[in-house]
Amino acid sequence: MQYKGYTASIRFEEEAKLLFGEVVGIADTIFFEADSVDSFIQAFHDAVDDYLAWCAEEGREPDKPFNGRILFRCESDLHKSAIQAAEAKNMTLNQWLTQAVSRQIEAEAGDPVVVRAA
């Protein structure tokens, strides 16, 4: 579910008969809940609007959802080597870099990274 560029996750708690939501893809934490689908949608919209209003009151930029783009600058020789490595594996540079970053995160964090095809 999306609103103003923000995405919500949805979880249903059967015992409480409540829908719980969280805005995902940002560093700040925004939770909300409701007892029906319509009120859940409204609660999500209200939570995002409240967050944006709070940021404005505090004079700070609201977190923007991650868009999947990373500007990466490197030496020209490294750029050339990366393209050659990607071509050798019949991959685009983007695919190769995504795979390389995922492997590094897994090596450092020990958790597998789920990568969607780009």
Score class of each variant (00 low, 15 high):
F12K: 03
S76Q: 02
R69S: 09
P62H: 08
S39E: 12
A47V: 05
S39H: 01
A53M: 09
S76T: 10
N90Q: 15
A118T: 10
S81T: 05
P112D: 06
F12G: 01
E33Q: 15
C55R: 12
C55D: 08
D46S: 09
L97T: 07
E13Q: 10
T98Q: 14
A27S: 14
R60N: 06
D77M: 00
A82Q: 12
R69A: 08
E75L: 07
L93H: 07
N90F: 12
N90H: 15
N94R: 04
A34D: 01
E13T: 10
F20R: 14
L71M: 09
G5H: 08
R73T: 15
A85R: 09
A47P: 02
A82I: 15
V101A: 14
A56Q: 13
C55V: 08
I41G: 03
F40C: 03
A16F: 01
S39A: 11
R11T: 09
V48I: 14
E87W: 00
I105V: 15
Q104L: 11
K89Q: 15
V114S: 13
K17H: 09
V48L: 06
K80S: 13
F31N: 15
N94D: 10
R11A: 11
A109I: 05
Q104G: 00
V101Y: 05
F66L: 08
L93C: 08
D50H: 09
